[in-house]
Amino acid sequence: MAFDWSTFTLEIINFLILVWILKRFLYHPILRVVARRRVGLEKVMADAKRIETEAGALKQQHERELAQWKEEKEAATARLREELAAERTRLMAELEASVAEERERRRVLDERRQSDFKRAVEEQGIAQGAAFSARLLNRVATPELEARLYALLLEDLRGLRAESRRAVADAAAAPGLQLKVQSAFALDAARRTELAQALAEVAGKVLPIAYDENPELIAGFLVSIGPWILHANLRDELKFFSGALRHAGQGPVD
């Protein structure tokens, strides 16, 4: 095997040219595109890392917000329970007050109803008592009882107090005044004269008297001197008695 210098020299030159050709058309283009892809991948990796970091931060923020919302929810629930308890207490107090007020109102109504019922019963009793008394007095009303009441009339006229006498005198001073005397039974002349004298003494002067018979008086007299009226009969006494009873019955209740 002979050594050929021409081949040796040309082989060196050829190889160096091939190095340049492959460097120019193979290595550099391939390495450039690989580098570009690597840069792209690094950018994608960096973006992915950044996104992962952001996602982690968002996740942590979300967890913090969840924890905060949970605390707020628990606080709000606690506040709501307290408000509900307070509202329940307030409503219960209002209800109890309303019930107490209603109970008091019903108690007052019951008492008033009982009082009215009692008063009605009393009035009914008084009315029945007055009716029974009037019926009884009608049966016992006689001229003798009339005479007794006549004596009491005279006694009352003569026993009037000074201020009563002045009031009668003032009433009698009215011009054109006529006295009216009503009696259950007819008065005889003697009693009329005696009564006129007694009235003249009370009025301080003689006044004309009109006599009238009124059986409703049951027994006794009704003397009118202007606005001043003297009751001396059983009907008015019964009325006074009934009024006194009613007044006595109403006093403690009202």
Partner: peptide, 12 residues
Amino acid sequence: GNLSVTSGLALL
């Protein structure tokens, strides 16, 4: 397979 070629490469 030629010594001149491989010698050139070895020299390089």
